[in-house]
Amino acid sequence: MLYLELFIQGLVQGSIYALIALGLTLVYGLLRILHVAHAALFTLGGYIGVIVTNATGSFTLAMVVAMLVVGLAGMLMYKLAYEPLLSQPPYVSLIASIALFIASEEIFRIAFGPYGLSYQTAPLQGHIELFSGFYLKYAEILVMGLSTILMIALAWLSMQTRTGVAWRATVTDPDMARAFGVKIQNVRYLNFFIGSSFAAAAGVLVALLNNLVEPTMGSVASYKALAIIVLGGLGSIRGTLIASLLLGVLESFGTIYIGHLLDRDAIAFAFLILVLMIRPQGLMGGKL
């Protein structure tokens, strides 16, 4: 019973990781940037979610607004922060991104106070009993459901539409795609919009699960999401999804059984280092 409960908890956590890490993978696959500041967009999503829900009372509206606004913020971040750095060596954009992330944490702290915000009346806090003694919160069902829907929507977009074809072509070979008339710039904007809005969805969902948004909520997400995309083999979407769920489940078991040796975050990185020693290209990465 405990096993099943841990497993489900792991899947819920893993779905959140997947939503966050997906945006990072998209950015890495296209631009080869380790986009640490992605977690700032995740936090922004959480804040917008709570503020709009408290102001209007509609959680659905909050989710939509958060995804749209944060998606635009992501595009803006690309335009202002990353585009000028594309010609520099990779560590430059990595450091710039870390700086951006730390600065945003401070700005959240200054703007909304250090103690965070909560929902006035948190939606979806009820639960159903699947079978005797085993409860699942509505919020947890929503997390798994919404992530699945968003993933399927993304898969449809990239596989079934012309935009998706252009996108995949750009990831594979930017120069060739440009030669075939794909507007690289638009693909990059789209990339940042989708990745950021997924992060916003994750932020709203995490705010719902914890009934709290705080300035530092992104810190764990940012570093762990990096671990996940590296684990999955940088740039591989399939690898990222597998790594997210695997890590979610592993953590939920690990916290119970080896929690006295390592804390939760350390488990993730111990696993990461272990995997990289055996497969330096990550779980699903191609040959280096």
Binding site: L94, L261, D263, F269
Partner: peptide
């Protein structure tokens, strides 16, 4: 030695978290 570039950056970051995680417990 087994990892390079971006993989190295994340691995060393992991080492930092691992160190703090072990000390803390």
């Amino acid at each position: 030695l087994r990892v390079r570039h971006d993989f190295l950056a994340i691995t060393t970051m992991g080492v930092g978290f691992l160190f703090v995680g072990i000390i803390r417990q």
